[in-house]
């Protein structure tokens, strides 16, 4: 309960769900999301790049073994699902899995910990979990969507891509209907991808906040929910990664 002025329940919840932001209207930047996601990503990917640059063939260290384990797991998933050969799919899947996992894991930091800590530094709003910010989930899903479209055009060519758009699934005679279906199908992909992650993490965070409101009773409740949340964190990272691979494989394979 960081700020002293409004200790009402709804005030507390709203306070926790408000981003640290600068700017006005559309040109608002959520600094907390940008900073946390950026730091986590830099930590993970620059660290992994450093580790990979001196990766040992004969004598892998513990960190290298861990990273190789994760990376080869993701690669196996990508290979099982995506049957073409692309230098992008596996790195993209690795990036998504690790980044989303780390950002989701921010949920396990007690909800009041960072706001109180930063409150001393004069920062009054701080939302520590970037995946509860729809801007981030939409940024990821729209990037994936763009890669998907580019890959579709690249694999099938512009003609093949347009042919597929207008003739699948009902044939050339019902071209407008096919186009409509295609648009619905394609719009649904990034929306479902981002809202699934956002919704899961937002709800999880909400439950943490509600538990934190229960006074002494939060002690027996926060731990089981956190333990259960570990499952959600991993699962959501995995689902986002897996669906991305599936969408890309759909984009680069002919529908018939």
């Amino acid at each position: 309960m960081a700020s002293g002025e409004a200790l009402t329940t709804s005030g507390y919840i709203v306070h926790h769900l408000t981003n640290l932001s600068v700017g006005q209207g559309f040109w608002t930047f959520h600094l907390d999301s940008l900073i946390v996601s950026g730091l986590l990503g830099l930590f993970a990917f620059v660290g992994m790049a450093k580790l990979a640059s001196r990766a040992s063939v004969t004598n892998p260290g513990k960190m290298q073994t861990l990273v190789e384990l994760i990376v080869s797991f993701v690669d196996q998933q990508a290979k099982d699902t995506y049957h073409g050969r692309s230098p992008l799919v596996t790195p993209l899947a690795i990036t998504i899995f690790i980044w989303v996992f780390l950002m989701n894991a921010m949920d396990l930091i007690p909800v009041d910990f960072l706001p109180v800590l930063l409150g001393f530094a004069g920062v009054h709003y701080f939302k520590a979990v970037p995946t509860t910010d729809p801007n981030l989930t939409f940024a990821m899903s729209l990037t994936v969507f763009a890669i998907m479209l580019v890959m579709g055009v690249k694999v099938k060519g512009v003609g093949g891509f347009l042919h597929e758009v207008f003739t699948v699934p009902f044939g050339a005679k019902l071209a407008p209907l096919n186009l409509l279906f295609r648009i619905i199908e394609d719009v649904a992909k990034p929306i479902s991808l981002s809202l699934r992650l956002f919704g899961n993490m937002y709800a999880g965070e909400m439950v943490f906040i509600l538990i934190a409101l229960m006074g002494i009773w939060q002690l027996p409740l926060a731990l089981p929910w956190a333990l259960f949340h570990i499952l959600i964190i991993t699962l959501q990272a995995f689902v986002f990664m897996m669906l991305t691979i599936v969408y890309l494989s759909m984009a680069s394979e002919s529908h018939g």
Partner: peptide, 29 residues
Amino acid sequence: NATLFGEAIWFGVFIWITMKYVWPPLQKA
């Protein structure tokens, strides 16, 4: 809001790092 662009840039940077500096050496090793 505009946070979306910032996050998209982060995402692109991390994909680039993974594609260029993380995955190929690890795969080779």
